[in-house]
């Protein structure tokens, strides 16, 4: 195995404190053998130039901090293998959200949509002394839904969300909406469907499926959205 290797980058840079406008920076960095993921390389780059700004935390794909646009596709830096990327590796902020600095975006709109679907269990029965029961089969309905890490890779790859980030809930929010619709313990099905019955909130999804393509956790928001549409339809007839 070769020990040292150099990787070429093209990185989106913008510091509103000193730059009039964003620019793409060409930069390269020498990696150690232990550097496997894109995040390792970015950390190495930051040691060289501490002005490079990006969010990161767990480095294992569960906190959702280091989502960015990598060679044109949204993903998590910590789960992206360097050796599988064509060089120069082009790094841009997630598309469709305002850039704060470098690859750090303002995620307010994204979280606003998540909050809008009431992402919490609603059950107005008096709480029993012990756990509410749920069969293993009913619990399995939540698989593929609850694992979302709110990284925003999906919503910011969705053309419908780019067009109407204020009106369309977006794949992440809708996945969360279905997570509660699918939970046998939740009692707010009617209220949740009412909340989405609108030309924009749910129905702006045109099954383009970019969300499925980019989800770093292998989740399928399009399928969940389809199930919400089914529930809507069944309710209507």
């Amino acid at each position: 195995m070769s020990s040292k290797r150099t990787v070429q980058f093209k990185i989106y840079r913008y510091d509103p404190d000193k730059d009039d406008k964003p620019y793409m920076q060409d930069i390269s960095v020498e990696l150690e053998e232990s550097d496997k993921k894109l995040l390792d390389a970015l950390v190495r780059l930051k040691a060289k130039d501490d002005t490079l700004s990006f969010r990161r935390s767990c480095r294992e794909g569960v906190c959702g901090s280091d989502a960015m646009n990598i060679n044109g596709k949204n993903g998590l830096a910590c789960l992206t293998a360097i050796d599988e990327l064509a060089q120069p590796i082009t790094i841009r902020p997630l598309p469709g959200l305002p850039v704060v600095r470098d690859v750090i975006v303002d995620m307010t709109q994204f979280f606003k949509q998540y909050h809008s679907i009431k992402p919490y269990l609603i059950n107005n029965d008096p709480a029993p002394e012990r756990e509410r029961l749920q069969t293993p089969e009913d619990r399995e309905e939540l698989n593929g839904l609850y694992e979302c890490i709110l990284c925003a890779c999906c919503s910011t790859s969705c053309p419908s969300f780019w067009w109407n980030p204020d009106k369309f809930v977006g794949p992440a929010g809708l996945l969360a909406a279905y997570r509660f619709l699918a939970d046998t313990r939740d009692q707010a099905t009617g209220e949740r469907l009412d909340n989405l019955e609108d030309p924009y909130r749910l129905f702006r999804c045109h099954s383009i499926m970019n969300c499925v393509d980019v989800c770093p956790k292998g989740l399928n928001p399009t399928k969940a959205i389809g199930k919400i549409k089914d529930m809507m339809l069944r309710r209507a007839v």
Partner: peptide, 16 residues
């Protein structure tokens, strides 16, 4: 936490 909606795995009889 279960009442808050935490999706614990379940035993065959529906418990945590």
């Amino acid at each position: 936490l279960e009442h808050f909606g935490m999706p614990f795995d379940r035993t065959d009889n529906g418990k945590i």
